[in-house]
Design a protein around this nucleic acid. Sequence first.
DNA 1: AATAGTGCATCAGTGCCATAATACAGCGCG
DNA 2: CGCGCTGTATTATGGCACTGATGCACTATT
Lengths: 113, 113
Amino acid sequence: MSNQSKPVYLKLRDMIAAAIIDGRYREGEMLPSVRALAAEQGANPLTVAKAYQQFQNDGLVEVQRGVGMYVAKGAAGVLRQREREEFLKEEWPEIRERMQRLGISPAELMSDA
Amino acid sequence: MSNQSKPVYLKLRDMIAAAIIDGRYREGEMLPSVRALAAEQGANPLTVAKAYQQFQNDGLVEVQRGVGMYVAKGAAGVLRQREREEFLKEEWPEIRERMQRLGISPAELMSDA
DNA sequence: AATAGTGCATCAGTGCCATAATACAGCGCG
DNA sequence: CGCGCTGTATTATGGCACTGATGCACTATT
């Protein structure tokens, strides 16, 4: 679902958020430059910048102009907590309702790791 | 998630599909007319027509020109089966991965009815 | 100073979505 | 027939989000 018709900058945003939460981008470390990530992902630098901007506004990354962007202290925790609440409050109720409608029992989903 | 920035015609499509699966629009029964549903939902008749069209192409509703549209026989089953497969194959893996990342255990969500 | 790397702002182009205003075509009923 | 209800086709238009190209401002390094 997330890899289909979703805007590129949102896919990038989720990708970056996941990397921060998972610790692949560690706190205090430098993030990939706009141009570098753009080249790596085959996207436009501006699109990548737009993805980064969301984190700047929330203070989750600190910008040093002419240098680069760094993961702020505590960003991983804040991000995980925020997404957690968002998931439980906004997304899960609809998912649950949908499963109920489609007759999908929770048991059959728990099997694999 | 489904009620946010999604195009109107897709929201209507999902709404109608849910109604058919739940049996609120029963097989053989007449669907709300394009104009009626448009007025009820505060949407444009053309947008409603666009939503209905998806079902016509799949033969899930039968059109009697000048009369109205009827839910085809077996539409509910086909629809539920199709959405079921789509959910299990496309959506659930990503949901599961996300839950894992956020540290949400499936068990705590399945409890209530 | 020169250079190359950062992020950022501005402007423009493109495509999808939604709407509007009509007009047309088929059916049922009085 | 005449009226009113169906769905459908056409064309045009405005809005909005996404994407993109270019150039500028800033910093570190040499």
